[in-house]
């Protein structure tokens, strides 16, 4: 499927278009992908909401409860209404958003690091290392992710003390969730990276680097890895959306981030029973998850179209 030799028609294309780097070309294409641009704008707005909102409300206010003010419909005082113990939902979606986005981003960083290391080692060295790493990858893929998440959430869910990051106290379960999402999602990326390495390592420029005595780690990190960045970025972008959804699922099953630390996922969980009596409880966090996942998916889709070296549409 990977047709490496350019065909006549493709050469003709190259003659007409001025020579652009992959990134310039990518940006040109990405710009035309209207939904990806739209997604980008929404995502920026969401980040402004979650992190800029912190200037409007303190975290103490987000956790402030007053049971006599419970389940109030949206009003001027509480634009998003109040929850089952009278906390302000707007403030909670702001601070919950920070955690949800944080979980999404950090777990994907873990995923990406794991995926690159395992994929690169397997693809570059081949042989026994490849066989062992790919068996591990297969082993992980052989169990449905949700089952793995549940077992691991229970395994790590025991004694996690609260942690303090940048002056804020988090439930230790935030770290647990990040680790288990990262640890159960790297397999696809590892396979992508391995495939890229396999096809790249036989190229002339790598053979040349080897011949001049360049060390293996240099070849891996300076020569091959930069050439595999495009698929890694696309895959990681889409993984952020999956990580945010995974947090919501695991929260729904009661194994997610523990209260009082809010996340969009656990806000949605406890609101399920107020489906009709207090719809603002699920509407706002639900919409925010939806918008985030949606915009990330749009961006990822746009990137895929834009950075795919085989795609010739401009």
């Amino acid at each position: 499927m990977n047709n490496q030799t350019p065909t006549l028609s493709e050469l003709a294309d190259d003659l007409i278009t001025p020579p652009l780097t992959l990134w310039q070309l990518g940006w040109l294409r990405f710009r035309r992908h209207k939904m990806a641009l739209f997604g980008g704008v929404i995502l920026i707005l969401l980040f402004i909401f979650a992190f800029g909102g912190a200037f409007l409300y303190t975290e103490k206010y987000a956790n402030f409860n007053d049971t006599s003010q419970r389940l109030l419909a949206p009003s001027a005082e509480h634009p998003f209404g109040t929850d089952s113990i009278g906390r302000d939902i707007l403030a909670r979606t702001i601070y919950g958003g920070q955690i949800s986005l944080f979980i999404g981003l950090v777990s994907v960083i873990i995923e990406t690091i794991l995926g690159i290391i395992i994929g690169a080692l397997a693809g570059y060295y081949g042989g026994v290392i490849d066989a062992i790493l790919m068996r591990i990858t297969e082993a992980m893929l052989n169990i449905p992710t949700i089952f793995l998440l549940i077992v691991m959430a229970k395994f790590f869910g025991g004694n996690v003390p609260e942690i303090e990051i940048a002056g804020r106290v988090f439930s230790g379960s935030v770290i647990v969730i990040i680790v288990i999402i990262g640890a159960t999602s790297w397999m696809y990326l590892a396979r992508i990276v391995r495939a890229e390495f396999l096809s790249l390592k036989e190229n002339e420029f790598i053979l040349a680097a080897r011949a001049t005595g360049t060390s293996n780690s240099q070849i891996i990190f300076y020569h091959i890895l930069p050439n595999t960045v495009a698929p890694i970025i696309v895959s990681s972008t889409l993984s952020v959306a999956n990580a945010i959804l995974a947090e919501a699922y695991i929260s729904f099953l009661g194994l997610g981030v523990m209260p009082p630390t809010a996340t969009w996922g656990n806000m949605l969980e406890s609101s399920a029973k107020y489906l009709d009596s207090a719809p603002w409880l699920w509407f706002f966090p639900g919409m925010l998850i939806l918008l985030t996942v949606l915009s990330i998916n749009f961006i990822g889709d746009g990137m895929r179209d834009a950075l795919d070296p085989r795609s010739r549409t401009i």
Partner: peptide, 25 residues
């Protein structure tokens, strides 16, 4: 294609418990 893609993405972005409870309701 764009409309359908947008709808698909919305469906894809909804947590399944949300769809389930909503449709049940």
């Amino acid at each position: 294609d764009n409309i359908m893609t947008a709808l698909l993405f919305i469906a894809y972005s909804m947590p399944i418990f949300f769809v389930s409870l909503m449709s049940m309701y």
